[in-house]
């Protein structure tokens, strides 16, 4: 470093170094809470169930509080902060038990982990609660890899898969690393790259209905690059993206379908799959 690259100011706002990458992980717990997320609830419940099976297979008891709903992200990203706060507050009341929270979606996990505390800057008590829950919230692949330290036994036939990671999951939860780490444990699975892999699929929550043509163009490019990748199957840890990409691939009659990584992993670990 030359002296030109000096610390700009003694008074400048301190940049809080994000601990996203260097997170410290606890020992494997006996018990976790699964926060299922609304999209999984309605459209991909098997992903949630397979997440439960994977966790139980690790000897962990899984609770599924029946009073959970949505993390609040749709309202928050649409500018309806008040409504988002109200829904987030309800989830926080449920999740603040000291038991680790596992979320089968990087984007929703990121919402709880990185955005809940900021939503309640004006409510110190809820903010403290949000900070406690945030510290104790894990995305599923992150949890399997870094807390359970799973060693997956692949029992399936050889298969080529493409991996799509939601943008917020990648940025806020490093889900691409975790998902790749798990897939790499499967001896029969080859992960193939696809063109512009890190580019957004065009889902973006309400973006896909507010800007349908732009979103449509984005997902069309994504499905094209996926279909040219040589993959037999698409894997993702985010069901919002899957809803979008699967919908487009189905419409285009492509012989390719996306699945949640929990379902894929669980299937690979079964005899005769």
């Amino acid at each position: 470093m030359t002296d030109l690259f000096y610390d700009a100011s003694p008074n400048a706002t301190r940049i809080v170094q994000s601990n996203k990458a260097g997170r410290e992980y606890p020992e494997k717990p006996d018990r976790v809470v699964l926060f299922g997320t609304c999209v999984v609830d309605l459209f991909f419940p098997e992903a949630g169930m397979d997440a439960i099976r994977l966790l139980e297979h690790q000897g962990i008891q899984v609770d599924f509080p029946q009073n959970q709903s949505c993390c609040g992200q749709p309202a928050w990203t649409s500018g309806y902060r008040e409504q988002a706060e109200s829904v987030a507050r309800a989830q926080l009341a449920l999740l603040d038990t000291g038991t680790p929270v596992v979320v089968p979606s990087g984007s929703c996990a990121g919402m709880i982990r990185h955005h809940y505390p900021g939503l309640f800057n004006h409510e110190p008590q809820t903010r403290d609660r949000a900070l406690r829950v945030a510290e104790n919230t894990f995305e599923l692949t992150e949890f399997l890899l870094n807390v359970c330290r799973v060693r997956l036994q692949d029992r399936g036939r050889h298969r080529q898969v493409a991996l799509h990671t939601s943008c917020t999951a990648r940025r806020e939860m490093q889900t691409h690393h975790h998902a790749r780490g798990l897939l790499a444990q499967l001896s029969g699975v080859t992960r193939v790259d696809h063109d512009h892999e890190s580019e957004c699929c065009g889902f973006g929550g309400t973006f896909c209905v507010r800007m349908p043509d732009i979103s449509g163009a984005m997902v069309a490019d994504k499905t094209q690059s996926l279909s040219q990748s040589g993959a037999d199957e698409l894997i993702s840890a985010d069901c919002g993206c899957l809803l979008n990409i699967n919908g487009a691939m189905n419409r285009q009659n492509l012989n390719l379908k996306g699945r949640h990584i929990a379902s894929f992993l669980w299937e690979r670990c079964q005899e005769g799959s």
């Binding site: 609830d41 419940p45 949630g48 599924f64 979103s215 449509g216």
Partner: peptide, 17 residues
């Protein structure tokens, strides 16, 4: 306009869990 309509599951995760 660009995708097939998604079909909800037969049973929600709430029920299955």
């Amino acid at each position: 306009d660009y995708r097939s309509a998604p079909t909800p599951a037969a049973r929600s995760l709430h029920e299955q869990a």
